[in-house]
Structures are given as structure tokens and as C-alpha cells.
Design a protein around this nucleic acid. Sequence first.
DNA 1: AATTTTTACGCAATCGTTTCCGAAATTCGT
DNA 2: ACGAATTTCGGAAACGATTGCGTAAAAATT
Lengths: 341, 341
Amino acid sequence: MSNMTLKKIAEELKISPSTVSRSLRDSHEISQETKDRVRALVAKLDFQPNPHASSLRKNKSKTIAVIIPEIENNFFVQVLNGIEEIAQNNDYHVLIYITHENYQREVDILHMLRSGRVDGIMISVASSTTNFEHLTAYVDLGVPLVFFDRVCEIMDAPCVTTDDMQAAFEATEHLIKTGCSKIAFLSLDGNLSISSRRRSGYLEALKQYGLLNNKIIVECGLDNEVNRQKIRSLFQREDTPDAIFTAIEKFSITTYEVCKELKIKIPEQVKMISFSNLTAASLFNPSLSAIIQPAYGIGRESADILFRLIDRKKLLPTQKKVIIPSHLVIRESSPVQQAVL
Amino acid sequence: MSNMTLKKIAEELKISPSTVSRSLRDSHEISQETKDRVRALVAKLDFQPNPHASSLRKNKSKTIAVIIPEIENNFFVQVLNGIEEIAQNNDYHVLIYITHENYQREVDILHMLRSGRVDGIMISVASSTTNFEHLTAYVDLGVPLVFFDRVCEIMDAPCVTTDDMQAAFEATEHLIKTGCSKIAFLSLDGNLSISSRRRSGYLEALKQYGLLNNKIIVECGLDNEVNRQKIRSLFQREDTPDAIFTAIEKFSITTYEVCKELKIKIPEQVKMISFSNLTAASLFNPSLSAIIQPAYGIGRESADILFRLIDRKKLLPTQKKVIIPSHLVIRESSPVQQAVL
DNA sequence: AATTTTTACGCAATCGTTTCCGAAATTCGT
DNA sequence: ACGAATTTCGGAAACGATTGCGTAAAAATT
């Protein structure tokens, strides 16, 4: 790296390092003339202050950490995109950590981040996370933390989510209204708030339409092969479902694959709908009805909140728990009119 | 953050900070007994050395930067996944920067990174990048830099790519062998090595089969709407193509959409094949034939190389220019047998 | 037993910036 | 013109960890 330093700049100009430092941050204590001289040389030498020295002295890293459970998921990618955008606007740097849904990895990362390496954290917890001590231990340090999507509601930290329950309700209702009565719900296993909210939406819809006895809930997880087997057996039971509602994009892919394998026709034999942020879902065969989450917006909003916390600005009352609505896009996998065979 | 410091630990134990420091890095100059005492207290207080102080003193940030042109692209996501994996193994942190194909942003980021914030960079350059001064200026600082996918071959820095030309050749050849003679190639605009290599593969195949006069090259770019229009006009010309080969995943999505809009049947009226790392491509209607790049492997390999450079280890001779083969997956959009109408 | 080597640790400088205190020098008010 | 306020800058102490050098004490060697 560049071995130029503030001190050398100061020597060169025969002024003190403090003056150079102040000039660079445009302090009012420095005359315009001096500032100009400093800036000229700094520009000429293309000097940049050492960020580690600066971080050490100011106790500020100008860096945030984003912790996500997986990356091969359009939702998290879009969130990350939003976060990165806001971070750049705020002159901040973004560290990325992927837990791969592994609780221990999450614990380790949070522990490591207690060193002051970052000024704040944005996290969507792993599905295997049930204990939140590593998170409270972090928050207790006084470092800002914002949850998005997979939040921990019992903690005193801002949460940005979508209206999972409402969205799940509407999706289920849509299936019911188009004639389905045996709707299977493929849930993400674990104790995540998101899982229970989506399940609640599903159950609530069943309840309102008197179909609670027909509920079919399948807990799916990380292992695609296991999921595949579970989905297969869905079609091997007595009363096969007439619709499948998957809580996670990935599950819908597997479901499509299984249907292809078992030669089960969507939507004729089974309708499909899923939470999904895959733009290509409209190109599926058949195109997939989807609950599209405002991922980019969630990223931007949660980053905004994090920076308010970092700047010690007061949050707007609405910013403690932000809920950005998803929207349902009905496509061929769950047509409004009954499909013609 | 934790306000515990080495010095306080030292006071507590009535030893000097240097002893504590050395104990933590398991120096042979410290007795086992002292090490144990230090470790016990450190564990009890859950102390972690301040990374900024450490970085400043050691002139090492334990951080790398990954610069990608876009994130909503499965290829880059998978590369990032591989990089993050290797980084964690090496106890390194990963900063992520997205240029959004914007040259100026790339320049700014590279300039900013000359401050010593990171120990190395991995980059896939923006499509609008034609001038490489910002990169050479960085490399001249002596900081390791590795290119992946979109490389700059004229520079003296390791490159990790796939065999774009060969893959493009095979894809084109496949189309020709299944009866296509008017194959359009949707190229990524700009002067990227990757673009010209893929184009060369396409052209070479045409040449070998005496179809060079039928070449149709469409330069597509960032703007989906512009691309859409260009693709539309492909079908409005005299001799409409009987196959389309897209160099970028995104272009294939747009092409599918246009075909849907114009009611052009794939593969009956036009065959399709594309570079794509979208797992869901097999679920498209029709399923998309794809050149799948070894994205995860590219990420791991390039990260491996970067860490060798950072550790001042010698590169294996094969690691200067690494080429990992892609593989072609033929699906319904370009069936081997002529489709029955 | 005297000397050399090894072990185990402390001192203090250092990394590069920032910022709290002054303290000249200048400007202002009357 | 004289004290007061302001402007403009420098000195030096942080920030927290690392490390070269020095040195007692213990162990090993002759």
C-alpha cells in the first residue's frame, strides 16, 4: 500500500500533522490558504489517510457486517444489493458473512464481531438458531444491530420484515378460492419467527374457510434430497394435496422437479404457489405464482435504520418494527380460472 | 464495543502487555504457566484484541475486497459463495463492492482501496471498463489482485476464468449439428475479454461449418428495455434466426420473454442456448440449454490464489492463468432431435 | 564453580491519525 | 491604543496492540 503518511505530508509543507488532519476534514480552524496547500499536495500525491489508524483513534470502523443464512437465494441477494447501495451512500463498507444456516457459525461470527471490527450489524438469523444469547450478548455491548426478514422479536432491536402472515394468508386464500381444499404447506423447519408467521397465515386462511382439518404441513430443511423425498411422499399418501404452498423459493424448485419426475401436472393435478423473488419464475413451466417480497426495499430500509442507530439519531417510532408489504403475482401454476384439461 | 484492552488484562495479572500479547499468539518465549493464566482471564472476560490496533501495527487488515459488476446474477453469487468459504477458512474477512457495471464506480472503489484497507482484491471488471489505469495503479502498489471471469489479460495479475471460447464453440456447434444455420449471438457490449472470447467461439464454429456469412451478432447491454427491443427486431427482419445463443444469463430471460410476447415457439421456431448458472433453468418453458460455468470453483480457486499472494507464497506455474472448464447441458430449448411440430 | 546458553519476561518505541490544550498572531470594540 | 475576542496553528498525548532489544534468573555446559 501507499507508504505516504499524514506526517510526511506535514513535513513536506512544513506544518504540523494536526494541521494537515484538520485541513482534510475541512476544519474551520484552518485558513483557506493552508487548506488549499494541503489539498493540492494531497491530491498530487494521491494520499489517503490510513483507515486503521483512523479507526483506532476514532473508534469507528466505517464498516458494517451483513450476516445472511445463505446466498444462493434471490431474496437475500436483493437485500444485500439494497444494503450495499445505502452503505455506499453513507461512505461505509460492507463485510459479508454467510452462516449456511449453521447456528455455530452464526455464534462464532457474532462473537468475533464483538471486537469492534464493525460499527453495526444487519442479520437474518439461521434456521437452526433457537438460542439468542449470542445476539443479546452483542447488543448488550451497545453496538447497533438490525434484524431483517428472519428476526428475533423478543430482542430490543429494530426489525424489518414483510407481512409474512398476511401474504401467506392471501396466497392460501387464493388457492382456496380457486377451488383447492387440500393445500399442503411446505414450511421451513426450525423456530424462526418467519416460519411461524407464514404458517399462521396459512392456518388462518384454512380456518376461515373451514378447512383446518385438511391441513398438511411438511417441515423442510437444508437438505434438498430429504426435501425431495418428503415431497414425493406427499403424492404417495391417500389424499394427495390439490395445491402446494411453499414457504421458501428453494422448496418450489424441488417441488417442480418432483412433479416433473412423477409426471404430475401443474396446475391440473396440483396447484403451486410460493414465496419467491426469482425473476425467472415467470418463465417456469408453468409459470410460478409467487409472493414477491420487497427484498431490495427491506435491504435499504434496514440499512437506513442501522445508520441512524450508528449516527445516534433517534429512530422514527415507525422504525422499530418495519413491515413492508409483499405482493402476490398469480401466474399459470395457480390460475384464477380452473384450468381446462 | 468491549472496552477491555490488552493493557488492562496485563494490569490485572500484574504482567506486562507484551507478555499478554505474546501469550495470545502462543509465543515460545512465554512459559506455559503464564500462558494459561492469560488465557484463563482472556476467556473469562471474553476479550478480543482490537483489530484496528492490530492492523495498524502489523500493517495487515485480514480483509479482502471482492468487486463484482452486478449481484443479481447467479454466476457472481456462486463465485462470492466460493470466495467467502475460502476466506473464512483463512480467517479473513470479505468486503463486497458492486459496481453495477459502472466504470466510474469501479475507478472510485479501486482508488479508495489504495488506502491499505484490504490485503488483496478480487475483481471482475465492469462491462463499461476499457481503460485499466485504475487497476495498474493499484497493482503497482504491490497489493495482490486476482481477476476472475472478466479479466484483464494484458496485466500482470493472475486470472481465473472458464474456457469461454471452447464453451461458446461447443454451444454453437451443437446448434449447427441440430440443424440450425442462422444462429444469432447476443453478445455483451463493451471490450471485455470475456465478450470477445465467447464471440470468437461462436464465430469459429460458424467458420468451421461454412456459415460465417450467416453470422448475426447483437450487442446487448445493461438496459433490459433496449435489449428487448433489439431482440424483437431480430424477429422482424427478413431472415429471422433459427437459433439464439446468449452470452449472458440475463439476455436469455429477456429472449424468453420476447418469444412469449411474440408467440414465437421455442424450440420449434427458434432454438435457444445460453451461458447460465441458474439452477431453475431446467424448469423453464421450455427448459433452457445452458453452458454452466464452474462459478463456485472459480471463486474458490481465485481466492486460493489471492491468499497465496498475500502470504507471499509462490504461485504454482499453473496458477497464473487458471482455466476451469464449463459444461454444456442440453435441454428442451435446443433438443438433439429435431422437434416434432 | 565458572561460564555459557536458554528461558521468560519487561521496557519502550512504533504503527498513523485525531484531538485536547494551549498559545501566538491577528482582528475587533470602544 | 489597549484589552478582548477571534483566527490559526503546533505540541503532545492519546487509541491499543506488536515487537526489537535488553536482561534477570534458571538451566545447561565444561
